[in-house]
Amino acid sequence: MPTVNYVSFDGQSTQLELAEGMTIMQGAVMNGVEGIEGECSGSCACATCHCYVDDAWLAKLPEMSENEDEMLDDTASERKPNSRLSCQIKATAELDGIVIHMPEEQE
């Protein structure tokens, strides 16, 4: 099972093994990792699962859809070049070990 490293805004790290196909957002909300909300239940419609993907992993991610790109303009914390919505990233073997940084706020 791929491992995901969630790093909170204040630097605390939580490592989780996610079943293949689970999204990074679901991994956080189902395991009580704070910092990701997922208000729209994963339909790319709210930008409350905003995260910053560690640069080392950025190139391995699936390309962002136009919709995700537009939603990222609505984030509560600043949008950066490595901003993504974590409901749009599924845990896969290729992303094993991915590091996800949480923003300061989601709403």
Partner: peptide
Amino acid sequence: PKGHLGFGGGVHACLGTAIAR
């Protein structure tokens, strides 16, 4: 609760979550 299925989930999760809330 986070991650509940009250609006379903995934690509087909309820369109009207913000209206409903």
